[in-house]
Design a protein around this nucleic acid. Sequence first.
DNA 1: GTAGGGTTAG
Length: 755
Amino acid sequence: MVSRQSVTIPFGSFLQLLHHPSPSLLQAQQAHAGLLKSGHLPADAHLATKLLSLYADHLRFPDASLLLHSITDPDPFLFSTLISAFTRSRLFSAALSLLSRMLALGLTLDPFVLPTAFKACAGLLSLPHGRQLHSLSLVTGHSSDPFVQSSLVHMYLKCRAMVDAHRVFDRMTQRSVVSWSALIAAYASRGNVVEAMKLFGLMRGSGVEPNSVTWNGLIAGFSHSGHSHKSATLFQRMHAEGFIPDRPSVSSTLPVVGDIEDVAFGGQIHGYVIKVGLESDSCVVSALIDMYGKCRRTEEMVRIFDEVGMMEVGSCNALVAGLSRNGLVNNALQAFREFQGQGIDLNVVSWTSIVACCAQNGKDMEALELFREMQFVGVEPNLVTIPCVLPACANIATLMHGKSAHCFSLRKGFSEDVYVASALVDMYAKCGRIRDARTIFDAMPSRNVVSWNAMMGGYAMHGKAKDVMELFNLMQASPQKPDFITFTCVLSACSQAGLTEEGERHFYKMHQEHGIVARMEHYACMVSLLGRAGKLEEAYDLIRGMPSEPDACVWGALLGSCRVHGNVRLGEIAAEKLFELEPGNAGNYVLLSNIYAAKGMWDGVDKVRDIMKSMGVRKNPGCSWIEIKNKVHMMLAGDKSHPQMNQIADRLEKLSVEMKRLGYLPSTDFVLQDVEEQDKEQILCGHSEKLAIALGLINTSRGTPLRVIKNLRICGDCHVAIKFISSFERREIFVRDTNRFHHFKDGVCSCGDYW
DNA sequence: GTAGGGTTAG
């Protein structure tokens, strides 16, 4: 049997191991053990340093730290090595704590460690640490070192301390291409095209030749700040001026090519990628997949993925996003599950993509389940995941999940992020918590147009037209410019509140003062606004004067107004268009029936029912017929001796039997069985958007408020909705129909007119 | 052992 002693390797062999071009971790560990045993460690600083860098190269940071701590008299070089290794591995906090330990031991800083330390501060976005180290560099006399200066400029830029960055830059005697590039990239990424290009010119004027990093800084900066055309042009200019576009140039340019959907240019870059042999670079491949996905070339996208992308998480993510973007939701889900099955290490981007894919394509429950699953498998949601999942909570009005995402954001410090907070405002508003939405809105440190729109849309949805207009005035006093969605909220609010003239004024100002071209939803709001005021002919004239073919929203608004005012002629015109545009939408048939029913035109009601039957339309019509029945009841309630009473009763009886035969859901018995007679009328007075969404009667919340209003009018069944909502343990809900409000509290429902 | 530029999710 061989004793342990007999396998001892002589000291020379350890040195050989250590000086091997790339020693394995095992070799390093063997050498470590042997050197300790032979007494060369921890005393020999040179050997310790060599070993320490080996551990760092193998990312064995605990081993490296232990070794460092075991050395009685470590030299600064040893610390520098490890600090640098930590920083390279983005372990910035560890790097800085090692630096403070080094200082505590009274070791002197050499000029090599400072740039790394500034990089760590930049990585942590820690301005206080950065400033401290800046002072230290002044004290130690290293502040004029060019490496120190440019890393200092970079640190201040990353920490968004532009004034400090400029102060350091302006005082530099020798401005290197590195510091110029850092400054130029910072302006480009802030979207300041003029200043970035001015500095680029000044740099060349001062005799410093730009390199590919300078060009790439401009290209990537403009790409991130949304200046897609500028970014693409710079790529071409770089090439034309004889610079060789490299991996970062290509990776930064392809996404903007996708944004501007210039597939011809994208194809040229693709050709260039193949020519220079970049087609196996993971970032380039992901960017190519992304570009073809954005340009709706899904076949080409999948082909590239199949050829090169399979096992790399970035290209997998790009593929899922590309499929999702092109509406291929099931393919995206299938691809995602396949990647999971293949053991690909899916990251937070992968999970966020698939959650977003579901939430954006009407698969709200799936989005929530995936959100739970990602946490179950140990992937923590980030700042982007939260605004992706919140719309799913909002769409199905699940306050519980929305609140939990809110709590998560608070714990993680995400709740002040403008995207997160805007999504929270939207979620609370859509879940009926308009006051909570406003509280979050008021607390936001910064707001963008999405934030304003979410709050105004929330008020519009709750029928709070006055609040919409107040907020719009506040917005106009703020630096934030309104967009087309803002005007949809404003016009919708004016329509709801009967502010006819004000609405008309905003409609014209939208185009004249803000240069926003009216879209379908704006016309629909205007039709509704005029229709509400009884100006049905004017509304019809507006429709006929539209520059493009009116869509179902516009005709729906007219039909709805015709029902309110009992205008059979225009109602028939609008309904005829709607039957063409939305042959399967039961609500349109019901609206026309209601117009006829209100006038006692029973032949018309029969005619519509026959059309509906011949079209095979069955979605939720049962409740709509009940609505007609009850309207008739209400009409005749005051006059029991009405000559048509018996005739109508027969008719209702037949309808009811027919409904049951056709299997319409939900049945009269079901919806009304628990309702007191005196409450029936109240319950039937309106429906809420929230309730409708909860029932799946409206499949999206991204439609315009007006579209929703139209749907509300037609959607059908608030009785079942109330039951559904009750099961959600909701205490109180405030909802509105076209011209009435609906207050539901502790199982009791009350209604009233707005004005 | 030192500084600047890259893809995919809102």
